[in-house]
């Protein structure tokens, strides 16, 4: 049965921040509304300072809305129990440096009321999921940026939340680390976990999200299903493999003969620089 209660519901959210004395308050978020249904991966994109993080913080009850309301699975965000089923990874997280990766997950697990054998097996499972089993006993202070993001993602998942909120999950991470995090988001999607992420890396959002919202200067300027938003309705793409020059000439002739159709572009599709980088580095890794 499909769930009808939205995982995230943000209704006409407005957030003003007080500035220095006698100056007008700064409006960080201006009448933003978002609805994310369970199982969706929603990407909120926008430039730095556009209100993405403030929207997320309001959803988590870290800031109180000036107007409007936020709820998680029907529970008001200002109530503590709304966080029962949420995992959050902030931008550039720094966890307690004196704890090891395993201890960090244990700490967050206990905060969520998990104890004993259940906690132990959950920690094992997550360390494996984020590929940090080898670094489990190492202090967080010695973790690389990518490892920090991955342990951050693991702590966000500790209580098996139904919603995961990721604020710039790949900020400052190299392409390999970025790919790992992206794969983890895909895994979450497969498990039916709702993901709400914000980023200014558009290509990445395009790859993982099925719904997108564009926020600019605190206002939502565009929102909807990714496929609907990026499709160019009056164009059709045809990608052929091992096509002979004769076949291509024939297709072009057919296009010319058909009235009202125009060939816009012809050429070889290109891989992305990122894919090239990942392919080459994995080749190198195999040879060593």
């Amino acid at each position: 049965m499909t769930e009808t209660v939205p995982a995230v519901e943000i209704c006409h959210l407005v957030k003003d921040f007080k500035t220095s004395f006698k100056r007008l308050p700064l409006r960080a978020v201006d009448d933003v509304s978002i609805r994310i249904m369970p199982g969706e991966v929603y990407g909120l994109i926008g430039p730095n300072g556009s209100g993405k993080s403030t929207t997320m913080k309001a959803l988590l009850g870290l800031v109180a809305p000036t107007a409007g309301q936020c709820s998680i699975f029907g529970k008001d965000s200002l109530q503590v129990d709304s966080r029962d089923e949420v995992g959050f990874l902030p931008e550039n997280p720094y966890f307690y440096k004196h704890l090891s990766g395993e201890e960090t997950l244990g700490f967050y697990g206990k905060l969520c009321g998990i104890r004993g054998a259940k906690l132990k097996s959950r920690v094992e499972e997550l360390l494996e999921l984020v590929d940090l089993t080898d670094a489990r006993n190492r202090r967080i202070g010695g973790y690389s940026k990518g490892m920090l993001q991955r342990i951050g993602l693991a702590q966000a998942l500790i209580q098996e939340p139904r919603l995961v909120i990721l604020d710039e999950p790949t900020a400052g991470v190299d392409p390999l680390g970025s790919r790992q995090i992206r794969d983890l988001i895909f895994k979450l999607k497969e498990r039916g976990i709702t993901v709400f992420l914000c980023s200014h890396l558009l290509e990445q959002v395009q790859e993982v999200c099925d719904h997108v919202g564009i926020i600019f200067r605190g206002k939502m300027v565009k929102e909807g299903k990714l496929d609907d938003l990026i499709a160019i309705e009056d164009q059709t793409e045809l990608v052929l493999k091992d096509a002979s020059p004769e076949l291509i000439a024939e297709i072009e002739a057919l296009i010319k003969r058909t009235g009202g159709v125009e060939l816009v572009r012809k050429g070889k599709p290109r891989t992305t620089l990122e894919r090239l980088f990942l392919r080459e580095t994995s080749k190198e890794e195999k040879t060593h």
Partner: peptide, 14 residues
């Protein structure tokens, strides 16, 4: 400062 508070308060911790 380290934003560890965010991760704690984002859990069901009053």
């Amino acid at each position: 400062e380290d934003r560890t508070l965010y991760t704690i308060l984002a859990k069901p911790v009053p």
